[in-house]
């Protein structure tokens, strides 16, 4: 640190051609050196934290893509199942698992989205008093349920109590339990963002409350709700615990939600993860890369819809 000579002009710009005018005695001309140092320090801390946060993400992406990316370039990967393929043999594809993951995700969304969105509408637009508080509290609890507990609950209900087989629909039910709170919370946030003036504007025109919700509030919040739904879907598609308990793996293509086994990408990964033979190891990484790719596409789709669907000004 240099000592400051109080006799000379200590302004940082002193002597420069673009230096500001003479000292007017306003106390504005001294830059605070301490503040500049603190500013720099905070900037370094911030960037370091950002870099640290990025390390695991980059690392995961790198190892998955470098080890499994090549599998995705083979057209067989997208067209064939693993039927008749053993661990020693190269070949086969993941279409059975991709199809299972997409199908279970879709059915989960079809069940969970209406329930979640309507619950959110109740909480934001109608809910007053004890019932609303209770519902909101329940959603909070549901948010905190570990996925394996949701899976065990469905197992206890579906298999132990009702005596049904472990089928894909049981997996879907467990995923619905996990998706509903995500949809409720994200939709709730989006509905709260709709300015109250719009609701009052519609009421003042003699529009009933339900129609105000359907024709004014929901369209205004639409893109945000879709984004929330797709993010929730991406979350449950990568969920594994319910699949391990309720949806064992098979190498064959399966389309029946109510009978037989349905393979998915997470169970495909789990199936061969202890293998040492290279063809099987490659397929594990390939399935992992495929799952990441699917979820990435869903996220991008969510962002695109949010971008093009938002109210134009």
């Amino acid at each position: 640190m240099t000592t400051i000579d109080l006799a000379s002009d200590a302004r940082p710009n002193a002597g420069r051609p673009d230096a500001p005018g003479p000292n007017l005695g306003l106390g504005l001309e001294h830059r605070s050196r301490g503040r500049a140092v603190r500013n720099q320090l905070a900037r370094i801390v911030m960037w370091t934290a950002f870099a640290i946060a990025m390390v695991p993400l980059a690392w995961i992406l790198w190892s998955v893509i470098s080890k499994g990316g090549a599998m995705l370039l083979d057209s067989h990967w997208w067209t064939n199942s693993q039927r008749g393929i053993t661990n020693r043999v190269v070949g086969g594809g993941a279409v059975h698992a991709i199809q299972g993951t997409l199908m279970q995700g879709l059915v989960t969304a079809v069940i969970a989205v209406p329930i979640g969105v309507m619950t959110a509408i109740y909480l934001v637009e109608y809910g007053r008093g004890r019932l609303a508080t209770a519902v909101s509290f329940m959603v909070d609890i549901l948010t905190g349920i570990p996925s394996i507990v949701a899976a065990l609950f469905i197992y206890a209900l579906w298999v132990t109590t009702f005596g049904f087989q472990r089928v894909a629909f049981a997996v879907v039910l467990a995923l619905v339990l996990l998706m509903i709170p995500v949809v409720v919370r994200s939709t709730e946030e989006m509905l709260k963002l709709v300015p109250n003036e719009l609701r009052e504007g519609a009421f003042a025109l003699g529009v009933p409350r339900w129609k105000t919700v359907v024709r004014v509030v929901l369209p205004t919040a639409f893109s945000g709700i879709i984004t929330g739904v797709l993010l929730g879907l991406a979350r449950v598609m990568g969920e594994t615990a319910p699949l391990l308990i309720l949806g064992p793996y098979t190498k064959n293509i399966a389309t029946n939600l109510f009978g037989g086994l349905m393979p998915t990408l997470p169970t495909m990964i789990n199936q061969d993860r202890t293998e040492v033979l290279q063809p099987a190891v490659d397929r594990v990484w390939g399935a992992a890369a495929t799952l990441i790719l699917l979820i990435l596409i869903l996220n991008l789709a969510g962002r695109l819809i949010a971008h093009f669907g938002r109210p134009k000004t």
């Binding site: 504007g201 529009v207 024709r215």
Partner: peptide, 30 residues
């Protein structure tokens, strides 16, 4: 509220609707 209309402090056109749709929002929604 259909008989007694109201204009608010802050302009509040419906953001998802065009100018024309805003004008007849009350009619269409009814």
């Amino acid at each position: 509220r259909r008989t007694v209309g109201m204009v608010f402090q802050r302009p509040n056109p419906f953001p998802t609707m065009s100018i024309a749709d805003n004008v007849v929002a009350g009619l269409r929604l009814n």
